[in-house]
Design a protein around this nucleic acid. Structure first.
Length: 564
RNA sequence: GCGCUGGUAGCUCAGCUGGAUAGAGCAGUCGGUUUCUACCCGACAGGUCGAGGGUUCGACUCCCCCUCAGCGCACCA
């Protein structure tokens, strides 16, 4: 950052009649190509005031500017380009990273404020599909990034453990169940679920049975409750295996069922504030009437039979989180198809005079399809997350057995590489993109992938092992070949900030790829373990790269094996 | 019909609040290791940035219109 202030001061020295320091800072950019310089100031906007051609302005300013502290300052067309003092910058950055270790890039912007993250949220009695990967890993990455920015993330697994589909499930078991409910596996339960859905579509009477069972469940019927608990426990056990493999934990497992007895207050509140009206026998918030310009459909709060809905529980959950966590932000990592739902949720809370409704943010992501079709348990075209992780593990293990058969702990590394490939692949692009699942896309190891970054770290670690004990106190790296790597290392704290500011965790993944590529280029062309007076400084760079790459992966929830 | 997304190289995607010749990976062709793990490095080839208007000194980026695709629009979540 010192270059930044130096830069602004230098420019301000010659431009103080025309621009403020803030305006200068705002216009600064990074040149497209590194050989143009490390920072650039375009002078187009001065053309009118100075009544000169931009090229000439740049040339004139460069003559007048104070160049101390820079390698050089040159005019290239309509730009003033600054070249930093490479050696001083490099050695300062390396010393900084080695001193801070994994804490490099940590800031305290959040000042410890709570941010709740509604994430993962698989449905009970169904397998966790590949589709649930997104909410899980995106939510987890946000939690890590928030922590790095000084916030206190609260990861909430808002389990889909309540709702009409449960009534259907029970109805199915009552119709066709031929053994005690405890003995049903999740996949057998899914079969029942698929069957009853087909039947309900054919016959309204079946659908009504489901609704009736859900109503009984909600009213505390003993038989329904007991079946629900059995199925829930069975499902949670299966989910836990997946979370363990992804190394993801939660601060709260309060799903929809948790709010079953906490909805009266919100309904009462909506009634008190005259927001609730009856329509066709149901209780609704008439958003089109209350907010004519918002272009939102009506929101149903209670069905004709008095049962609650998704919206009812989400309203209760939102208030519960506000009261319990006093959040600075409340994130919902949920598919883009629910955009309207969250707009309604915020609108209703706002109508109820809750200013904190503005702190609710829907972190949406694109649909995962398979063969261009939406995955659906009912249609049976579901790829489970476990299947994908297994596929990735097998492919990684095969690769290791072929290329590095003597590697110790092969199975552990294969798991880290396999899961790393799947998770990184999900996080590296804009989360709003749609993903059509194919095994080839989900499990890749070469090029822009998680394993590429992991491999870079492993090779760097290998150099450090061979180097033995190294003294990092006297850094004097003067090597142009490392400059790309250094500037990237220097940028990490800024990337951490923008990942949160822009709500874009893919920035971390893209950054890790760029850093890995820059380092690999250096590695391929330069010998590091050569005995000369810069050996330790080169090793400091290697060490710094492993620290920052590993921390980048950690933010994404990806492990970095020591060797692979 | 209304709304929300998206349309950039054969494929998958980057492209920051408009700025210097539109970038990667994969696939294709060719090349690189007596060297620290070749899951690596490099070169070549590949683009009317969906179409058309507009704003601007300057538009992949902002505005308008059209088009195509996906998703959503009261008793599911």
């Amino acid at each position: 950052m010192s270059e930044q202030t130096q830069l602004i001061d230098a420019l301000y020295g010659v431009l103080n009649e025309h621009l403020t320091k803030e305006e200068i800072a705002d216009k600064l950019e990074t040149p497209k190509s590194a050989d143009l310089g490390d920072a650039a100031f375009p002078v187009f906007t001065l053309a009118k005031a100075l009544r000169q051609a931009p090229q000439q302005i740049a040339a004139n300013l460069v003559e007048q500017i104070d160049q101390t502290g820079f390698e050089k300052v040159v005019a290239t067309g309509p730009y003033i380009n600054f070249f930093f003092d490479k050696n001083a910058t490099t050695n300062a950055v390396l010393a900084d990273i080695l001193a801070q270790g994994a804490d490099y890039g940590q800031n305290n912007d959040g000042a410890g404020a709570n941010v709740t993250i509604d994430m993962s949220s698989p449905n009970i009695a169904k397998p966790m599909s590949f589709g649930h990967l997104r909410s899980t890993v995106i939510g987890n990455a946000f939690a890590n990034v928030l922590k790095k920015n000084g916030y206190n993330p609260v990861k909430i697994n808002h389990l889909g453990d309540w709702g009409t589909q449960f009534g259907l499930m029970i109805a199915a078991y009552k119709k066709w169940g031929d053994k005690p409910i405890e003995e049903y596996s999740v996949s057998e339960l899914v079969q029942l679920y698929v069957r009853i859905n087909a039947a309900a579509k054919e016959d309204d009477a079946v659908a009504n049975e489901g609704r009736a069972w859900f109503k009984k469940l909600e009213d505390g019927d003993a038989e329904a409750q007991s079946m629900w608990q059995t199925i829930r426990a069975e499902s949670l056990g299966e989910f836990q295996e997946v979370y363990d493999r992804l190394h993801i934990t939660f601060d709260s497992m309060n799903g929809e069922a948790f709010f079953n007895d906490k909805m009266d207050p919100i309904v009462a509140e909506l009634t008190d504030k005259n927001l609730l009206v009856e329509s066709q026998g149901a209780q609704i918030v008439d958003l089109p009437a209350l907010l004519p310009d918002a272009n939102l459909p009506i929101a149903m709060i209670k069905r004709t039979d008095g049962a609650t809905l998704y919206m009812t529980r989400d309203l209760a959950a939102a208030e519960f989180r506000q009261e319990n966590y006093d959040f600075a932000k409340s994130l919902y990592v949920v598919g883009a198809e629910q955009t309207e739902h969250f707009r309604q949720l915020k609108a209703i809370l706002k109508l109820a005079d809750h200013a904190w409704a503005d702190d609710i943010e829907h972190i949406s992501y694109g649909l995962i399809t398979i063969n261009g079709e939406k995955m659906s348990t009912r249609k049976g075209n579901v790829v489970t997350l476990v299947e994908v992780l297994n596929m990735a593990y097998d492919a990684a293990l095969a690769q290791i057995s072929e290329k590095n058969p003597d590697l110790p702990n092969k199975e552990i590394v294969a798991e880290q590489v396999g899961a790393g490939a799947v998770v990184f692949n999900d996080l590296m692009n804009d989360r709003k993109n749609f993903i059509d699942f194919t095994p080839e896309n989900a499990v890749k190891f070469e090029g822009d992938t998680g394993p590429y970054v992991q491999y870079t770290i492993a090779r760097a670690n290998s150099i450090l092992r061979k180097a033995g004990a190294v003294d990092f106190t006297d850094l004097r790296l003067a090597d142009d070949a490392t400059w790309d790597t250094t500037t990237l290392l220097k940028n990490f704290p800024e990337v951490v900030r923008s990942a949160w500011d822009k709500r874009d965790t893919s920035l971390i993944a893209k950054y890790a790829l760029r850093l890995a590529r820059a380092f690999n280029k250096y590695y391929a062309n330069s010998k590091i373990l050569t005995d000369d007076d810069q050996r330790n400084s080169r090793l400091a760079l290697v060490k710094a790269v492993t620290i920052v790459l590993a921390e980048s992966l950690a933010l994404l929830g990806v492990q970095a094996p020591e060797e692979m």
